[in-house]
Every structure is written in C-alpha cells, then in structure tokens.
Design a protein around this nucleic acid. Sequence first.
DNA 1: CTTGACCTTCCCACCATGGGAACCTCTATA
DNA 2: TATAGAGGTTCCCATGGTGGGAAGGTCAAG
Lengths: 136, 136
Amino acid sequence: MNIGEASSATGVSAKMIRYYESIGLIRAPLRTGSNYRVYGEDEVHVLRFVKRARTLGFSVDETSTLLGLWQDKSRASGEVKDVATAHIAALETKIAELQGMVKTLTHLAHCCGGDNRPDCPILDDLAGEGPAKQGH
Amino acid sequence: MNIGEASSATGVSAKMIRYYESIGLIRAPLRTGSNYRVYGEDEVHVLRFVKRARTLGFSVDETSTLLGLWQDKSRASGEVKDVATAHIAALETKIAELQGMVKTLTHLAHCCGGDNRPDCPILDDLAGEGPAKQGH
DNA sequence: CTTGACCTTCCCACCATGGGAACCTCTATA
DNA sequence: TATAGAGGTTCCCATGGTGGGAAGGTCAAG
C-alpha cells in the first residue's frame, strides 16, 4: 500500500504521515526498491488510532503515550484512564474559558444597538471606558 | 515612557509590543536620541484595547479590524456588532466541539475500570475495536 | 514513448509567543 | 568618575501541527 492509499484509508494526509514518522510517533515503514513507503494493515491500524486520538483533542505527545500503552500488553488500564481524565480536565478548563468570553461578548453585543449610530458599548468596553463589568 | 513601563502599564509584554508594531497592528512610536521607543497615554490606551480584545479571544486580524473601527469616528456600531457576533459564533462552535470530545472521553473513562487489568475500553475505542458509539 | 498521477526530499509559511545572544544606554552607587 | 546592573535595541530560533510548493524520480495507461 502506497502512502496515498494509506492516507485515504485513514484520513491522515500523506504530509502528516511523513511528519508523524519524522518525529518518531510512528515507525518508519519498509520501502520498495524505488524508495516508496509501503504500508500494511498494522500500520493502517496505528494510523487510525492516531487519527482518532488527535480528533479527540489529544496532543501528539499524549497520543504517543496512548500508543505506547496500547502496544504494551501488560499496561494497567489505570494509566490510560489517568491520561484521559487529565485530558478531560484540560478540555473543561478550556471550555470554561471560552464560555467566559462568550458571556462577556454576548452581554456587550446585547447592549450594542448595532445600528448606524457611532456609539458602541463593545468598543467602549474594549477601550476600558465603558461601565460594563467583566468580573474576571 | 519606556517600552518596559508601557508593558507593565498594559500587561502586554515588551516582546509582543514590538511584534505588534512589526506586523503593523500598532503604529511605530517616536524614539529617543538613543533609539528607545517612547510611549504616551494614547499608545498605552491602544495597547490596553489590544490586550482586552486578545483576552476576549479575538485574533490579531480581528483586533486590527476593531481597532480601525474604534479609531474611525464615523463607523457604524453595526459593523462592530457583526464582528463580535461572528466571533461569538466561532467560539460557540469551538465550545460544542470540545464538549463533544469531553462527552466521548467521559463515557469511555466511565467504562474504564482504571485498575490494573489490561482491558481498557478507551484504548479499544481509539483502536476502533470497541463497541462504544461516538455518534458524531 | 509520452502523459499524468504519484512518490521522494527539502524548504517555507502560518499564528502568537517566548528565549536568548550580542550589543548599546541609562542610572545609582562606591 | 568609574563601574555595575537594569533595561533598551536588533536578530535569530523554537514551539505545534498543518499546508504549499519546487525539483526530481517512478509507475501505469494509452
């Protein structure tokens, strides 16, 4: 299987497959006589694992850890749960942060007429002149 | 006012102030005879505006737009509201995405014993072997 | 045999930020 | 007044993932 075929079989671009190989996330595959990378089912399986982990927001580093645990038959599932739990916490922190932004902006947009008058509470707030309380 | 004083007056690092100048987000200030940047109240005001916009998650590009609108006395507040509204929508999309990840991971972590047995539904799911439905 | 699709490596760009080197300038103190 | 140290200047490099593209080799179909 070519890198292009492996790419469409996994949804990981050829560019990224080479990149993952270059940083050591995945192992270098065999090559044909003409230096083409050759992938088999195992490699595709690994790539799908990586794809899924990345889609779930794990960093490449975390993905690497998970991949190691996946391939370690003797791993304790507690280790995996720890990685997942830490990741959930990080996601929730990020979500709370974004929600705070949305809250502030929604409040401001609500106060902003949005018409053609030049008075704008959003800009006033950004400029630190407005009476709007941000509370954080 | 030195760049360092401007930095502590606004919370924008000296490094970033120079960067914002280099990309044209803010204007180049006057210099002393010894080539030090000199900032006044106006510049500090602009930097605070930028800081606040960045804190609210606006990209530098969006910040630039808002800054232009702020400095344009004849702008319509509707334009500002549009930028803010689009930004809120983008934030909410991002939030929904992250919440989807949390949901999936929470479900998996809940199913994962987290003990010392090697069976792990999280890894099974990442590998695409598990019965867990992701539904997105 | 040519054409076009695909592979290879290598470099560059993004966005926003930080680190650090090498060098210059100001201020306070011995 | 000499010197130390704090802070300014420019310039380059790194991050994390990803894409774009050039230059050149390879394969398959017409």
